[in-house]
Design a protein around this nucleic acid. Structure first.
Lengths: 131, 131
DNA sequence: AGTTCATATCTAGTTATTTCGATATATAAA
DNA sequence: TTTATATATCGAAATAACTAGATATGAACT
């Protein structure tokens, strides 16, 4: 009966008592995670990674006010040009901001869509946590 | 007139031409970021950090199905106990999940509130990004 | 008290990220 | 075509995060 016979099933059997039920439970749990597309999960993690930095969150907040070029952003966040540019390219790769070349300037703006909602949501979550 | 006389203003002056206008612009930009509470921004970044890992995203997805104990989660995500436990404590510290002690078991569930919305939002963003 | 089992914490090795100066690219003006 | 300026990219050092084995804690059972 046991098709998935491994440590996990043994452990689950000790937990539940019945070996068949245990195997069933393990299969069910594995089934949920197997259904999750590994590539998609990674891509989603990348989006969160891009937002997981104070400086980049500041940049996103700034861009809520409108389009800005790198030299304006670096002044606002008070970081050297290379750092600012690097953060911007991470945000761009994650799809959170868009770039528009304009002569020697690169002007950045928020991507249309869910970025602002995301910022609002996390603010809310934080308020709930402390508040 | 120049109260904030530094490199940033000089740079902005070269950009804009007028020194007073430049100072004004720098002040305005700095004002936006200064208004952002450093502590709050860091706390928000911590929340995103907690979500910025494929394994932890899997755990959160799992917990959408309901409360689970560590030994069930470690089976589902196929990681050793210590790693699983570590990820769970990060998620808990970020306020994304809640713990309930039950004998020798620790049972975890999603925090009420915006966690699910966040997961839905990032999924949407990813779909928009690729299509 | 001793044993067992679920979970947490510690530790060290590895890998990823952040940071910023230096350099490269590219546009525009002289 | 030289010069200046805005931005990107490189490189290397510092820091942080992830991983997993080993050990510790703590509850339940004997």
């Amino acid at each position: 009966m046991a098709e998935v016979s491994d440590e996990a099933v043994n452990r689950m059997t000790r937990l539940i008592g019945d070996a068949d039920k245990a195997e069933c439970k393990v299969n069910k749990l594995r089934c949920i995670t197997n259904k999750l597309d590994e590539t998609q999960i990674k891509a989603e993690a990348e989006i969160f990674k891009a937002m997981a930095d104070p400086c980049r969150l500041k940049i996103l907040s700034l861009l809520r006010e409108g389009e800005l070029c790198v030299c304006e952003i670096m002044v606002a966040v008070d970081r050297p040009q290379s750092s600012t540019s690097h953060h911007l390219s991470l945000l761009k790769d994650a799809g959170l901001i868009k770039e528009r070349k304009d002569g020697r300037w690169s002007r950045y703006r928020l991507s249309e869509g869910a970025v602002i909602e995301m910022l609002n949501l996390v603010k809310l979550m934080n308020e709930v946590k402390y508040g």
